[in-house]
Amino acid sequence: DVISEGDGAKLKNGDAIQVNYLGQAWDSTKPFDNSFDRKQPFDLTLGAGMVIQGWDKGLVGKKVGSRVELVIPPDLGYGEQGQGDIKPNATLVFVVDIVKATQTPAPAEGAEVAQDNIDLPKVGTKTDGKAPTVTIPKSDPPKKLVSNYILESKGEVIKETDSVVVNYVGLLWKDSKAFDSTYQTGKTQTFPLAQVTLKGLKNGLVGKKVGSRVLLVIPPDQAFGNEAQQSIPAKSTLVFAVDLLAKM
């Protein structure tokens, strides 16, 4: 239900949105989560599966500036398994303030920048919505962070306090295997840079322009260091090709 309706655009799947919210179980008087108290809005791409289905379904069509109440049954929430303080088969109630939204544009665009260092990966420049090719050389990886334009746009400069909307593919330098890619799901990712724990990712994107494609080569000391991370071995150098689609 719409508690108070804003006068902004209606939300669509694929929009990058920023919200404040309070959530509690139907049979509880105590919230289990509250971004208002944290004074930190939450960023997401609507319809990308970044949140429970009840959010993705319930926010579509609502206007920016609105306050919305979502009552979410278990099958559109956390189901039989629950989550943290949320009991199995819980019906959830959220009050959501839609702070702002931006329509995610098409792939990155801009002037091609020469890739003339043979010791760095070469990134494709096609902007057809598919993952760009990334060719990693057989040489040893650089010891310091690399953050280079592949396509340089004329968009706004990214600041550390911004949230960004991106498409990316991430690979291991050692064997060129992809360990993560938004292109596999067809959904962009939205996140606040201030909360990014991968140091090289944050440092490499700050100062770059919206609309650009960027090559990042992240040494272990700015990645996961001596810790293995799922399919990423310890002491890995990581390679990302990132399309900076928007900022919030």
Rank of each mutant, 00 (worst) to 15 (best):
K10G: 14
Q53W: 13
K235D: 15
D162S: 05
L44H: 08
G58L: 12
D119R: 11
Q53S: 10
K247A: 09
G47N: 10
A246V: 01
V166H: 02
P88A: 04
Q24I: 03
D116V: 00
P105I: 06
F179I: 03
G211W: 03
G124Q: 04
I86Y: 02
D33H: 13
K87Y: 14
Q40Y: 10
F94C: 13
S231F: 10
F36P: 02
V93I: 14
D162W: 00
F191E: 10
V96L: 11
D243A: 00
P74A: 08
Y149F: 06
V134P: 13
P141N: 02
Y183F: 14
L245Y: 02
F32V: 12
K10T: 02
G200P: 08
L120S: 06
A114L: 15
K39Q: 14
A234Y: 08
K62N: 15
A241W: 12
A241V: 09
D75L: 07
P74V: 02
L59M: 06
T91N: 04
A228T: 07
Y21F: 14
D85Q: 12
F36H: 03
V214T: 01
A106G: 14
K57R: 14
T190C: 04
P88Q: 00
D162P: 03
N148D: 03
W173V: 00
L216C: 01
A114V: 15
K235E: 15
D97H: 01
Q229A: 08
V19I: 15
K63S: 15
V64S: 13
G82N: 03
Q103E: 15
M248T: 11
E160K: 08
L238D: 01
G61H: 02
E152G: 03
F42I: 14
L59W: 00
Q115P: 07
I86C: 02
